[in-house]
C-alpha cells in the first residue's frame, strides 16, 4: 500500500515538475510578454496542482493535506490576479489603468 502511495506521489510530483520545466522554457524562449505570461501561468498552476496532489497523501494527516490544498488555491488565486494585472499593464499601454 505504502509503495503504491509512494509511486503515486513520485508520478504526480514528477509530472508537476515537467510542467514547471515547460513553463520555465516558455518564459525564457517566448518572444513577447503576453505569451511568456501564458506559458508561465498555465504551466505553474497545473504544475503546482500536481505537486500538491502528489504530496497530499504524504502529509500524514487530513489537516495537513487540507493545508496543502489551501496553499494551492491561494497561489492559484494570487497568480491569476497578478498575471491579469501584468497583462493589463502590457496591453493597455502605459498610463491607462492608473486611476
Amino acid at each position: 500500500m505504502s509503495v503504491l502511495i509512494d509511486l503515486f506521489t513520485l508520478m504526480a510530483v514528477g509530472s508537476g515538475l515537467l510542467f514547471f520545466l515547460a513553463g520555465t522554457i516558455g518564459l525564457l524562449r517566448f518572444p513577447d510578454a503576453l505569451s511568456r505570461l501564458h506559458a508561465l501561468t498555465k504551466a505553474d498552476n497545473l504544475g503546482l496542482g500536481l505537486i500538491v496532489l502528489g504530496l497530499m497523501p504524504q502529509a500524514g494527516s487530513a489537516l495537513g493535506a487540507l493545508k496543502l490544498l489551501v496553499i494551492w488555491l491561494l497561489a492559484l488565486f494570487a497568480g491569476a490576479v497578478a498575471s491579469q494585472m501584468i497583462a493589463r499593464l502590457v496591453q493597455g499601454g502605459r498610463g491607462c489603468g492608473r486611476g
Binding site: 491579469q84 494585472m85 489603468g97 492608473r98
Partner: peptide
Amino acid sequence: PAAPSPPL
C-alpha cells in the same frame, strides 16, 4: 496606491 481592476 490604487490601481483598481476587477480581479484585484
